[in-house]
Computed example of a mutant assay.
Amino acid sequence: MSLLEKEWFIQAPWGRICIVAWGDCLDPPVLVCHGIIDSAASFRPLISLLPKKFYYVGMELPGNGKSDPFPPGVLFSSHDLLYAIVVVVRHFRWEKFVYLAHSFGSNLGKMYALTFPNKLTKIIELDPITVNGVTDHKNYTKWYQRSYDEYCRNYDKYNLPKEFGPKYKKEEAVAKLMKNRHLTKETAEATLERWSEPTGDGHIRFTFDQRSKIFVHYQISEKLAKELYTNIKIPTLALVADVSIDRGLYKTTPFCLDEKSYPAGNYRVRFVSGYHDVHVVKPEVLAPYISNFLLYGLQGLDNTAKL
């Protein structure tokens, strides 16, 4: 029996945040957060395989999925996106909850844990490669040019109303998404459906906020990143895709691959075979780890408890 899916909106200062939830609201909550230019739909295959004893609440970040974007004119940062999580948590009045996220959403989870250290009971990170604010002084120029300079030089492009944006044939957009993110046709169509709309002439246009491509990640050194993140004491499970490692995407954050880097002994990493969106394409590979962790915590990962 699959969990019932419901969708609605909650109000934020800048507009509406779309919520897609699965399960019974009386069960323990699990906040689910996607990565850059994505939607809650990407979690459907995985949620269907997880324990039915939890209430899974998927939020769509501003300018993603069906959520309203931030007001036009200003280049936003990861800290602005973090506040969207604050809005959702306050709306539900959660005292404690589990956090499950993919990619950049995992980075937001770390930021939330540092800001509100007593709210999270568990953290589950799915290929958390996007701690990409990690840099050194040699890359500062490149960082500024890639964000602020790029945005200001192309201000009109990044603030163009969606009605005037380029059009694409749906088949071409699906094929491109399948190629770039290694998705199946079915999962690519489900993902695309939440951040595109038909134009009435056989084409579609994208509805996600174009600023999502270049929003600001504040820069910190590798040393500071390690000091901050490895001192988060909340029980954490990281599921890391081998293709991401092979591509060098953890080069500046090798501590994410090493349980011994966490002095509290609260961190477990498990390596899985697949691309960055493995949770969409092969959720059956990740589900057993996540289920054991949700039900039994760190002991479940250490094989002292079984489903």
Rank of each mutant, 00 (worst) to 15 (best):
L160I: 02
P13Y: 04
P72C: 11
I220D: 02
I37A: 05
D80H: 10
S39P: 02
T115F: 07
Y275C: 12
E150M: 10
V86Y: 10
K213N: 15
Y55A: 01
Y250T: 05
V174H: 00
A190R: 10
D24S: 13
K96D: 08
T115S: 11
Y262M: 02
R146S: 15
T230A: 06
F104H: 11
P254Q: 10
N303Q: 15
K110G: 04
A101S: 14
E150L: 14
E197T: 00
V89N: 01
T252Y: 09
T130I: 08
Y151S: 07
I220M: 01
V88P: 00
N292Q: 13
T236E: 06
A84R: 05
Y229E: 11
S2K: 11
E172W: 01
D24A: 13
H102W: 14
E186T: 15
L81R: 03
F104M: 15
V278L: 14
R205L: 00
P71Q: 06
G248T: 06
L294M: 10
C25F: 08
V98P: 01
S147I: 11
Y83H: 11
H137R: 05
I10M: 08
P62M: 07
A113E: 03
A84V: 04
Y229F: 13
D209L: 12
A241P: 04
A101V: 09
H182M: 14
P72K: 12
G105A: 08
R194C: 00
E171G: 04
K53E: 15
F9D: 02
R44Y: 06
F208H: 12
I85D: 03
Y144V: 15
G200L: 03
T141Q: 07
G265A: 07
F271Y: 13
N266Q: 11
P198L: 00
Y218D: 13
E259C: 08
A225R: 03
K260G: 13
A188R: 06
F271E: 11
L192Q: 00
G200N: 00
S48A: 14
N64S: 15
I36G: 05
K66P: 01
C18Q: 11
P62T: 02
K162G: 01
E172L: 01
M59A: 12
K185D: 13
Y155W: 10
A113Y: 02
E171I: 05
L249R: 09
S2D: 06
I19T: 01
I37V: 14
L120D: 03
L50K: 05
Y144W: 14
